[in-house]
């Protein structure tokens, strides 16, 4: 046990890996096999043009709906993370408000085809050009770059599950009431992540590479907030009346 914190046994870490991985697979929205079978389905040029010619508010609404659907799965994942539901309700909400979109972005690498630089969206694989009508080319291109770099790490489902839990349990979020409790859960999750990386014989500094993703995720989410705020300034009524209520709660 020399390589782990003395208060967490190997058996406990194995259990945490198992539980987190099961929670991830039960709530991951799409199975890898399903996605693999769909990987040949790419949008045709006229379909791409049809997305590009949509009014910005229609495309924004469509993306808000897709993000909200993905977030609902992340909420289910959070509920199954060991210790999450033992946190106070304030902290459960704080962690999901700050971290749910980050986990959606982490999970996106499962839906991403690096070879074709495309992501599974609205029934087929879409390149960045499909999202042109949103008017946020820079953000979209950064999201695609992020997905590509996550893919290049070739994380297993176990590793992805623990990294997602690690992100959700970030103890440095503002407005936490029981910060210490969250910190303990996050440290245990980090140990389990380290444990599974060692077990999978990854000696390429994968943990450090994952730690670097934390700031990239925060930057993407704050840029999403900025873009939403700019959109809302032009189309306040569309956001108020047509956007999913959960999306407005989280990002409003």
């Amino acid at each position: 046990d020399g390589d782990t914190c003395p208060t967490v046994s190997m058996a406990e870490l194995d259990h945490l890996v198992q539980v987190t991985s099961k929670s991830h697979l039960e709530t991951c929205q799409y199975l890898r096999e399903e996605l693999h079978q769909m990987s040949w389905q790419k949008f045709l040029q006229d379909e791409v043009e049809s997305y590009q010619s949509k009014p910005p508010e229609v495309m924004w609404q469509l993306c808000a709906v897709k993000i909200t659907e993905a977030i609902q799965y992340v909420v289910e994942f959070a509920k199954r993370i060991d210790g999450f539901m033992d946190l106070c309700q304030n902290d459960q909400i704080v962690l999901l408000k700050a971290g749910s979109l980050e986990v959606v972005l982490v999970r996106m690498c499962r839906l991403f085809d690096s070879q074709n630089n495309s992501v599974y969206f609205d029934g087929k694989f879409a390149g960045p050009d499909v999202f042109k009508a949103l008017g946020c080319d820079d953000l979209i291109s950064s999201v695609f770059d992020f997905a590509k770099s996550m893919c290049s790490l070739h994380l297993s489902e176990d590793e992805l599950a623990l990294f997602s839990a690690f992100i959700l349990l970030s103890a440095d979020r503002s407005w936490l009431q029981e910060k210490l409790q969250v910190e303990k859960l996050q440290q245990k999750t980090e140990l389990a992540l380290q444990h599974v990386l060692q077990k999978n014989q990854r000696e390429d500094g994968a943990l450090n590479k994952l730690r670097c993703k934390v700031s990239a995720l925060r930057s993407l989410c704050s840029r999403h907030a900025e873009n939403l705020s700019a959109f809302r300034a032009v189309y306040p009524d569309i956001v108020r009346t047509h956007f999913p209520p959960l999306y407005k709660e989280l990002f409003g």
Binding site: Q72, V75, K79, M85, I93, V94, L96, W175, L246
Partner: peptide, 17 residues
């Protein structure tokens, strides 16, 4: 916070399926 996040709170309260 709970008041401002009624849907999220509700989702958290729903039992896991």
């Amino acid at each position: 916070l709970k008041e401002k996040h009624k849907i999220l709170h509700q989702l958290l309260q729903n039992s896991t399926s």
